[in-house]
Amino acid sequence: MKSASQVLPLEITGQSEGYERSSREAGWPLWEVLIRSKQGLDHKHVGSLHATDAQMAIENARDVYTRRMEGVSIWVVESKYITASNPDEAGELYEPAIDKVYRHPTFYQLPDEVNHM
């Protein structure tokens, strides 16, 4: 059996088993939009849109996602260039972190005198 990652493409490209890819490709490509809401903060994924090229994607993102001063910087990336992890593999992927409590500061019980360390 094929692994789910082969059968189900990216979440954000929206393709999944049982649906034709061709009808999507007839339209404009899909882009993911990331916005920095103010200087000093990360760009954050806000949604997606269709556009013929990067310039149009930025202009459309401006119109759709920053009408109320929500951003000072926009990134766009064509969705097909994003690789996503597979939720079915979440076990193997994240399990190694589960038993390493010593990576957290709360693991260490220190005398009261140094409690604000």
Partner: peptide
């Protein structure tokens, strides 16, 4: 005008959400 423009944006958010389930915008 601002309100009608918002509705277009809302349509887009929702189409994008539906597209994640595997149906294309054109369909």
């Amino acid at each position: 005008l601002a309100k009608v423009q918002d509705e277009a944006g809302h349509g887009l958010y929702l189409y994008a959400a539906a597209e994640t389930l595997g149906m294309s915008r054109d369909e």
